[in-house]
């Protein structure tokens, strides 16, 4: 038989290394799915805050699963227990897996290969907190253009609504499941000289997290 012996045989399925997962997903397929998700949720709510909350809840479920998967796949079944550790886990590992790969996208019948990761700005860590956040329990992840917002124009009458609420939900899902309860929100931040505002994801940790951090030193 051709190919026999090339693949290492594992007697026990549990000995098999966990697959890396498929790294490429069609951006169009994702965009349409996300668009439908927003449209469906819109039919279920009667105000914008409620819509934001529903998107966040959808993201939360993703975040909880992503944490489980990535701790197993990338970190050898360990998870971060320190504040800065979990934050860098979010903005490096989680971000890379969710948004950071070259995607195969189709537009108008031609396949174009594009790298989608904006050189994602680091989330601000302890001593380099961005101006405007005076609170030590607040951290920010800021991105020029969030993948979920790539094709979305918010109508004027919806005010400050941001579909990044979904991504905020993912972040909250990861943090909460890792034992760092936090309130996570997505905001548009206008940039001078730029037509489009950036999206900033604001993380505000619960008091108990900071108390625990202080105790751990």
């Amino acid at each position: 038989m051709i190919g026999v012996g090339k693949i290492k045989q594992y007697t026990n399925v549990l000995d098999k290394p966990l697959s890396k997962g498929k790294q490429e997903v069609s951006l169009s397929a994702f965009a349409f799915l996300f668009s439908e998700m927003v449209q469906y949720n819109q039919t279920q709510v009667d105000n914008i805050a409620e819509l934001e909350r529903r998107l966040e809840d959808a993201g939360y479920a993703v975040g909880a699963r992503v944490l489980e998967l990535l701790c197993h796949r990338e970190k050898g079944n360990r998870r971060e227990t320190r504040l800065l550790g979990i934050l860098s886990f979010v903005h490096s590992t989680v971000w890379k897996v969710l948004f950071g790969k070259a995607l195969e996208i189709g537009c108008g019948g031609t396949l174009v290969r594009r790298v989608l990761m904006e050189e994602s700005d680091r989330c601000q860590v302890a001593d380099s907190l961005e101006k405007g956040t005076e609170h030590e329990d607040e951290y920010m992840i800021s991105e020029k253009e969030l993948l979920v917002n790539r094709f979305i124009s918010i109508p004027k009458d919806m005010g400050t609504f941001n579909c990044g609420a979904f991504v905020a939900g993912i972040v909250r899902g990861v943090l909460d499941s890792a034992g760092f309860p936090a309130v996570v929100t997505a905001h548009f931040v206008p940039v001078e000289g730029q037509l489009r505002p950036r999206t900033t994801i604001l993380i505000k940790f619960a008091e108990e997290v900071l108390r625990r951090e202080a105790r751990l030193g």
Partner: peptide, 25 residues
Amino acid sequence: YELYTDYVLKNPFYEMEMPIRCELF
């Protein structure tokens, strides 16, 4: 047409067959 499919049809706030009001487009 490519721009239309990207920035209009993938926008959850666009209603099919209605006038296009999408900033990104």
